[in-house]
Design a protein around this nucleic acid. Structure first.
Length: 521
RNA sequence: GCCUCAUUAGCUCAGUUGGUUAGAGCGGCGGACUGUUAAUCCGUAGGUCCAAGGUUCAAGUCCUUGAUGAGGCGCCA
């Protein structure tokens, strides 16, 4: 045992002679150079476990998950859920170095990859060299090698990536984002970046965050006492976007199929497990498409990404599934889901969503047991009322027991840009070609519609809903010049990640959640 | 924004109708063991009981206010 290159953190557990003996001779008979032996390229653990190159020398770098028996390091480098076992020859290693191998420390190890002599893993790394890059003092480190509550980890969100659960969540989140891009790319969609800062406050989708460089302590006023936005950066009031839809429509009416995938901001005081002030939304927009095309697209996309996750995130989903099984054990019998996470995803991939109109849904709800027995907090009075989440949950979780697409809502409870339907028999009032996709446990995951492409119908609806026409004249130009039927929807990305990972709180599927009273990290 | 519940050791939690010196598991530290798998075994330290005020002979326990967190509802994706 001696130090090398004067670096005390590098300890060689074997001699040069041993190294040479274990290294195959160069094919040409040339002398083997030291530089061929030592400078090794780091290999990711995911690749090692995939290819299992036993009897080769490898170098790995990662973080210590466990150090058992003063001998076995469980090393994780984030490339996959699994750890690589590093076996240290503790009898021939500096005790001072062994003492630095703590839970959470960043280390590198190199040596021979061999078939494991113990149970529990197929291969392991017989360490010839261990380097500590970053120590981790266990008395101060907030994480411990044990289960922490999600609430605790949320308060230490800067460190929670290091837990098995959150590493899995964020690898799955990445896979889903990639799958969405792949889905749309395969179908000829163009990825459109819409502005984050917008001057339009007429999109009808929630409260907005003001963007300004005006001094808040001394806001300039006009002669009439109003805020003088002509002195602001954009010389007009501006906000963070609540939707890229209107801009996406402009592009769709030239490029045919487009989608956005970007951050979205809602300044609503929403304190729930399904809302964030800053979230990511996917908004496809398709020219020459009607409501049925829209539903087909949304359903195909959701089934595609669920299948993608099942195929590409097997190990991570297993971790998340086991977590859920543990969590369910502490729940009362009647609140358990009955399906495992992968069974749930498989169900979505294999089964068509239930499609029905708002009017049909009202009939089902009106005649439902909970409504007759007065169990609903908001009893179904009749046609025209907005559905509450208890009603949506009844339809999805009790009545159909599968994802549901509700269509053709009353015009009065939906946005101005949704296409007015032809009157239908048995439908009491005017409806629009809207659709909401409802998922178990999450509620509305997709909201969309066929857009109103008829200029005069649209202008009339804007007047009815007090949307100022002059602010949206650019939007109306699409209807003035070469208008066509088109449709699109918005998918809440974090709600999708929630569904696929089984995480109950939306704040646990985004790296650093923003919600009322909280913008930490 | 509204309603309900919670806050006790580093973490997860127990703590009886208010009553002596507030406990456990895990984690930490020290030691033993050395093919382990949340390793095991022995020992040990660790507390402003969320904060402020109040009731009482006596408050972790009861009351008031506040802070933070969780769940539900509304708004929505």
């Amino acid at each position: 045992m001696f130090s090398f290159f004067g670096r005390p953190e590098i300890q060689f557990c074997r001699t040069f002679a041993l190294l040479f003996k274990n290294t195959p001779a160069a094919p040409s008979g040339h002398p083997i150079l030291i530089s061929e032996l030592f400078p090794m390229k780091r290999i990711k653990i995911a690749e090692i476990l995939r290819t299992e190159p036993v009897q080769t020398r490898v170098q790995v770098k990662g973080w210590v998950k466990a150090f058992r028996n003063n001998q076995f390091i469980a090393l994780n480098d984030g490339s996959c859920a699994a750890n690589l076992q590093i076996v240290v020859d503790f009898e021939n290693t500096d005790p001072a170095l062994l003492d630095r191998i703590k839970f959470g420390a960043a280390i590198g190890a190199s040596g021979q990859l061999i078939e494991s002599q113990g149970k529990g893993q197929r291969v392991e790394l017989k360490a010839e060299e261990v380097v500590v890059y970053g120590d981790c003092n266990p008395e101060q480190y907030p994480l411990q090698p044990k289960r922490h509550s999600l609430e605790y980890l949320r308060e230490h969100a800067h460190l929670r990536f290091r837990t098995n659960t959150f590493a899995a969540v964020f690898r799955v989140r990445h896979a889903l984002a990639f799958a969405i891009h792949q889905f749309f790319n395969d179908r000829g969609f163009c990825y459109l970046h819409t502005p984050v800062i917008t001057a339009s406050d007429a999109e009808g989708a929630g409260e907005m965050f003001r963007v300004t460089t005006l001094p808040l302590e001394r806001v300039p006023r006009t002669e009439t006492g109003e805020i003088d936005f002509s002195l602001d950066f954009f010389e007009r009031p501006t906000n963070l976007t609540v939707s890229g839809q209107l801009e996406a429509e402009l592009a769709a009416l030239a490029l045919g199929e487009v989608y956005t995938f970007g951050p979205t901001f809602r300044a609503e005081n929403s304190n729930t497990t399904r809302h964030l002030a800053e979230f990511w939304m996917i908004e496809p927009e398709v020219a020459f498409a009607d409501l049925t095309d829209n539903m087909d697209l949304a359903e195909a996309m959701l089934r595609y990404v669920a299948a993608y996750a099942l195929e590409h995130c097997t190990d991570d989903l297993k971790i998340l599934e086991d977590r859920l099984i543990e969590e369910e054990k502490s729940k009362p019998q009647d609140q358990r889901s009955g399906l495992t996470l992968t069974e749930k995803l498989r169900f979505v991939v294999d089964n068509r969503f239930e499609r029905l109109t708002y009017t049909e849904a009202i009939d089902i709800l009106k005649n439902s047991n909970p409504n007759k027995k007065g169990k609903f907090q908001y009893p179904i009075e009749g046609w025209g009322a907005d559905l509450q989440s208890e009603h949506e949950r009844y339809l999805v979780e009790k009545h159909f027991k599968k994802p549901v697409i509700l269509t053709n809502y009353p015009a009065a409870i939906k946005a101005f840009y949704m296409r007015l339907d032809e009157p239908r028999d048995g439908v009491p009032g005017p409806t629009v070609s809207a659709m909401d996709i409802l998922f178990p446990g999450i509620g509305e995951i997709v909201g969309g519609s066929q857009r109103e492409e008829r200029l005069e119908v649209l202008r009339q609806k804007m007047r009815d809903m007090h949307i100022p026409e002059d602010e949206l004249s650019w939007y109306l130009d699409t209807r003035r010049f070469g208008s066509c039927p088109h449709a699109g929807f918005g998918l809440g990305f974090e709600r999708l990640v929630q569904f696929v990972t089984g995480m109950g709180n939306i704040r646990d599927v985004i790296a650093f959640p923003r919600y009322p009273g909280s913008a930490e990290f």
